[in-house]
Amino acid sequence: MNQNPFKVFALVVLALGLVAAPIFAHHSAAMYDTSKKITLEGVVKELAWTNPHVVLTIIANAKDGQPAQTWSLETTSPGNLTRLGWTKRTFKAGDKVKVLVSPLRNGKPGAWFVSGVLLDTGKEVVGGLPTVEPDDDEPDHKK
């Protein structure tokens, strides 16, 4: 048997019916390699609009001989995403998307969502935390 090891892994995952989605209490994003940015293209399966972290699940297209794969893309909370202009309907099942993500260091199909484009409309969506500035011209405190 001269099986592609990735294919075997994919079959095992499919057989188990499971993929890993990173999710937990609020946590450091250091499990993601933020020095890396990769692009995935595929179809939205679900936007889990939940605290403490929202998770966008997409089925990435087969590419470079790899089979289609389910990816879980984590970002911040519904509250903080609302401030960036998201709603629970920003992504819906079936939407074609292209996303820029920082992958998990452990090689599992999970990543930190950086930004994305809804391919049917061209709408761009950015993840993360809102940046806030004082509007009272206060100098940085010196303490």
Binding site: N51, P52, T82, P130
Partner: peptide, 26 residues
Amino acid sequence: WKTTRIFYRQRQRKFDIVEGICLEAS
């Protein structure tokens, strides 16, 4: 340890506090 933390006021309604049940995603 003396240290200061800074908070900036937001008046836009999109900053209104929303429910944040931590176990929701579990």
